[in-house]
Design a protein around this nucleic acid. Sequence first.
RNA 1: CGGGGCGUAGCGCAGUCUGGUAGCGCAUCUGGUUUGGGACCAGAGGGUCGCAAGUUCGAAUCUUGCCGCCCCGACCA
Length: 447
Amino acid sequence: MRLSQFYLPVLKETPSEAQIVSHQLMLRAGMIRQEGAGIYAWLPLGFRVLKKIEQIVREEQDRAGAVELLMPTIQQADLWRESNRYDAYGKEMLRIEDRGGREMLFGPTNEEMITEIFRAGVRSYKDLPKILYHIQWKFRDEIRPRFGVMRGREFLMKDSYSFDVNKDEGAKSYNRMFVAYLRTFARMGLKAIPMRADSGPIGGDSHEFIVLAETGESEVYCDRRLVDMPTPPADTDFSGDLTPTISPFLEPYAATEEKHDAAEFEQSVTEADRVSARGIEVGHIFFFGTKYSEPMKAVVANPDGKETPVEMGSYGIGVSRLLGAIIEAHHDDDGCKWPMTVAPYHVGLINMRAGDERTDAACETLLKALEAAGVEVLYDDTPARAGEKFARMDLIGLPLQVIVGPRGLDDNVVEIKSRADGERREAPLGEAAAMIAAEVHAALAVK
RNA sequence: CGGGGCGUAGCGCAGUCUGGUAGCGCAUCUGGUUUGGGACCAGAGGGUCGCAAGUUCGAAUCUUGCCGCCCCGACCA
């Protein structure tokens, strides 16, 4: 992509309404634009990252055996009356009326609808287990939206729902999502720690996945050993018993404020390993049994031929929020520092003298070769000054910058700069594309 | 919903107390000089001062109402 054809409205100054660094950088790097309190338009650069994150979430859901579908954003009030949540949900639910005066709502979550979809198609325990998920926009009329996409009112969420014949089977589904979540966040360069969490009005077992960050909204407490716990590998067998895989994560102490037990914390964790910090909740998993299946009559015939309500769980990932969390974890004073797996483009190609025959030709050749090798390139072909180009490229934070200018071309080399550590090195012009492509693919291969 | 603050050019702000017909920096456009880390000179364009009503000869400025946004608290991916 040529920058001259792209839409990248960067800001030199920090908009005053942005309080935390991720919000500031997303506005400055032209990733989002606020259209109302807690409502954002996704500009091209931000949209690309959103799609990358969404795709990683999707791949790990699929790997864990979940099946994707798509439910509508608008739902009917009657569906929510079946679970008695239409009145219980309160003002956080955005209620709408259609032209016929029917009560509708913009979905804040989808337990009711998925239960309705499930019960319409499943009759027997032999069809279980099932995990269904979708990635869809939600609207929750938050009392106080803030911090940009970290607490928007409209937000993109991946929500999965598991259906099992009994509680033991339900626990297996819960574990599958548990492992899928560990892998999902790790692939984005995040250390997300599962913590015992308050399951709220839903009840049942619950874990929140927390990224430690000073700007996090929750107070959390955990054992330091959890911070560097290795991620379960890509070849994990999701059809097998996952208890040994997840038990190392369950044994050390970890809890959010609501579930924190100071006495237990001090007793079970050595003083040196006690971490009390702030964190960003990027995922939340629940097992809630028959809360919806019972009132909504989502039942299957069990092996005895008796109809029993299915045991359900729900599993959420805040996809749009993850952009904020990743920036909080990966940035410096100059801008974002995207991990390769979620970067809007892998490489920023900087033409130091756009309009000069020699640099233009070298850039065009590199661009073609890189794109042919499957590398996503943002090519700065604008006539802007060098300082401006570097600052802009640092701000948007592409992992690799390739600098092509007369100075290097005199020696037949280009410069490659890594955004992560600022390291610069030279590469022969003829070999640069292959070297960069290999580097990009190596970084992406880590799954 | 309670408490606090803000709304003036795309962005950041001054002007409001003390009413006199709107300004600064950045950005944008034109010409020129520059050109490897946010350049310089000269010129130009861009504003129903959030909206409405009121007071006044005259309102960005005073009064009232409304709208929007931000921050602190209770709720949440």
